[in-house]
């Protein structure tokens, strides 16, 4: 009897420490990646990094100003396309779609779209916009990122709208507002911080995406803001520089990774803070 008891206690101790070890091992990669990115990247960050063009192959100096601006433009195009679309679809899922057959289907497809490999989205937009217009473009890159962002915004909007207390809606309706005005003037403002969280999460998700940009925005070694022309972006620049042969390129790639990771982690923490303070 005693031996069974001791065996159970030992098994308990052993398994609980294994579970604790698993949790510790799970955070090691984050620390390892973050430490290297900070250590290797910090040296490459200076004013030139944000204001200069990349220097010619193999030469030291230069920056990634065009890629920083390009990433901002791509994210802006994607947000401008995906935010209104996603919010409207989210309203549908939370309100009209309830109790219908279409609602759950759209919700499922939205989740499925969220899981489509982003490189496939890149191929899709390549066929849709690059082949038809005959050129890589910032617009095509923005559309590809927008497709990836759309389900994130739709689902978070749905959740935010569902969290609005029904007394708030009913009060608005009781005052004689038609449903559409009650939704736009009362429900949406109440759900604002939830929707904002969704947009921030969406931006965080797409700003580091590389694969969908390879065949759409392509890349550009010069300054460009023209949405009909190829445009540089930080993730694609990291890929090109990291796989290139020059030491100076590798340093710049680490610098770009530091900028990108800081941005994405800050956006994620902001979204967490925003959803917790609600």
């Amino acid at each position: 009897m005693i031996s069974t008891y001791r065996r159970r206690k030992l098994a308990n101790m052993l398994m609980l420490s294994l579970l604790g070890a698993a949790a510790l091992v799970a955070v090691v990669p984050l620390i390892a990646v973050a430490a290297y990115v900070v250590l290797e990247g910090a040296g490459a960050i200076n004013l030139d990094f944000f204001t200069q063009l990349p220097s010619p192959a193999g030469e030291a100096g230069g920056g990634m100003g065009n890629a920083v601006v390009g990433t901002l433009e791509l994210v802006a195009i994607a947000s401008a396309l995906a935010t209104p679309t996603g919010v409207m679809a989210g309203i549908y899922l939370a309100q009209q779609g309830r109790g219908t057959r279409l609602g759950p289907l759209v919700r499922l497809l939205s989740d499925v779209l969220n899981g489509v490999p982003t490189i496939v989205v890149g191929l899709f937009v390549y066929g849709l916009l690059v082949l038809t217009t005959g050129s890589f473009s910032a617009l095509a890159g923005g559309v590809a990122l927008g497709v990836i962002m759309l389900p994130v915004i739709a689902r978070t909007t749905e959740e935010a709208v569902l969290q609005v207390p029904s007394s708030v809606r009913e009060a608005a309706l009781a005052l004689g507002l038609p449903e559409w005005r009650a939704t736009l003037r009362v429900v949406l403002p109440t759900a604002r911080s939830g929707i904002l969280t969704g947009v921030i999460l969406g931006v965080a998700r797409i700003s580091g995406e590389t694969a969908p940009l390879l065949f759409t925005a392509f890349g550009n070694s010069f300054w460009s803001l023209d949405p009909t022309k190829p445009i540089a972006s930080l993730p694609v620049q990291i890929y090109n520089f990291a796989t290139g042969p020059y030491e100076s390129w590798h340093r710049q790639a680490w610098g770009a990774a530091l900028v990108l990771m800081t941005m994405v982690l800050a956006l994620n923490l902001a979204a967490r803070w925003l959803s917790r303070s609600r």
């Binding site: 799970a26 990646v33 580091g208 993730p235 990291i238 990291a242 790639a253 990774a257 994405v264 982690l265």
Partner: peptide, 12 residues
Amino acid sequence: LAAVPSVVYGLW
């Protein structure tokens, strides 16, 4: 960990 861009994992 999910927020780190995949190209950064690649670089690392």
